[in-house]
Design a protein around this nucleic acid. Structure first.
Lengths: 235, 235
DNA sequence: AAGGCAGAAAGTGTATGCAATTGCCTTTCA
DNA sequence: TGAAAGGCAATTGCATACACTTTCTGCCTT
């Protein structure tokens, strides 16, 4: 294989692998406990085992995959206890971000937050779950950025990505959209008011509620490595 | 090289490399900005480049080294802004840990914390900086464990290790030991009282003060890659 | 003399091969 | 018939080889 990397985009191959495999874990294509075979992955992405191994190493450091020495890698399987701990941490982290936002956001950041938030009200009325989910992600990212603290941002993003597999199903719950919007509203209002304490508390509560909604999906479902037989869809 | 790995202990080679290189970064043997040459490291540890590369990848994911595509790896160099952000995060994280400790520590944990803390008073009177530093590390670890939240523990430990290179010089400051002990005392008292809010505040202040003490060492010292010529001491 | 370009050297990125460990299956003995 | 031991297949871990990118050096041009 001396030719250019065919379908995978630019950047280093390993980086692409990390994103590709990580995405599939985060989006639930690869389920916790599923075996990650090096040769299969290498064949699937049309690269050699070396970049695959390096990618798995990085994903392991990120906590998304678990590596047993000499026994291969599996998608990280989290215990109920650890899951609770992660949600709890997420609540605290988002609380901190919201508090910092209330104290530090620039005028334009506040305006953008308010504008986007108000725009999303329409999605709630329409019941556009897909679109609202996209907005929701953007809303939270805005909160992380608005904290003006690169490290908090890193920690929050990391925790969020590790929680992603367990948060997907939450919007199926009836009335979730409206409730989510109201919670967002409380956060936005407090931030615009410059009330860090209230913003922090509101953000913490927001995550806590999501946590409860997601907890049910945590344990119980641990499919065997059935879906690996059919490699995931083309990138 | 078919023989057993000689000096490095058990476990996978990559893991040993991660620890070995990571230690040298954390302890300041390798200074920020220093070039990490793969072949030199491989030769130094008597392994091939493959495990070195994997170790660098993991260290990069941990944030201890910075990897420029096609341009080698260097010990992560943090900007003043990022350093401030990390200390700020550390303060928040320790605050959370202390708050959780006040709410969740078991009886034996509280007793152990109190006992060790009181024992350390002796070290302050003697001015035993080395021994106090060791105790100090243990004290903080106790706080992280006592929070009973594995993920918070991870985040805290990670942030702490990334801050380690910048925290070493703090105890040189006059009267630092006594002040540190008093701050610890405020934390311990609040925890034993079960006052989560007070414990959190006290822990946050504690880190903030350390932060200020360390900030001076942040920028200004950026030695060129001089010490790499002489490989670090035998492990 | 200064700037830029060409070629070589150094170093990283990826592929492949070999050794070693693991897990499973078969065989054998109680 | 069950269990334990040994061998075999599969997979991981590490080493080496090759390809490509970057950078340094020296020469040529202006």
């Amino acid at each position: 294989m001396s030719g250019k990397r065919s379908l995978i985009r630019s950047g280093t191959t390993v980086d692409q692998m990390v994103r590709a495999i990580g995405d599939r874990i985060v989006t639930g294509v690869l389920v916790p406990g599923e075996k990650l075979d090096e040769v299969s992955l290498a064949a699937r992405f049309e690269v050699s085992r070396t970049p695959v191994r390096e990618a798995l190493g990085q994903l392991s450091a990120m906590g998304l995959v678990e590596r047993r020495p000499n026994r291969g890698a599996i998608v990280a399987v989290v215990t109920q206890e650890h899951l609770t701990s992660m949600f709890e941490s997420m609540a605290e982290l988002e609380g901190i971000c919201a508090r910092f936002c209330a104290e530090r956001m620039s005028g334009s950041e506040r305006r953008a937050l308010e504008t986007e938030h108000q725009a999303s009200a329409r999605l709630v009325r329409l019941g556009a779950e897909e679109d609202y989910e996209y907005f929701n992600t953007e809303f939270h990212s805005r909160l992380y950025r608005g904290a003006h603290s690169t490290h908090i941002q890193e920690l929050t993003a990391m925790t969020r990505s590790r929680l992603a597999p367990f948060r997907r199903a939450q919007f199926r719950l009836a009335g979730r959209l409206a409730k989510s919007w109201q919670e967002h509203d409380a956060i936005v209002t407090a931030i615009l008011r410059g009330d860090g304490t209230a913003a922090g508390t509101a953000a913490k509560n927001h995550v806590s509620i999501v946590s409860e909604a997601s907890a049910v999906f945590a344990v119980g479902e641990r499919p065997k490595a059935a879906s690996l037989a059919m490699p995931f869809t083309a990138s």
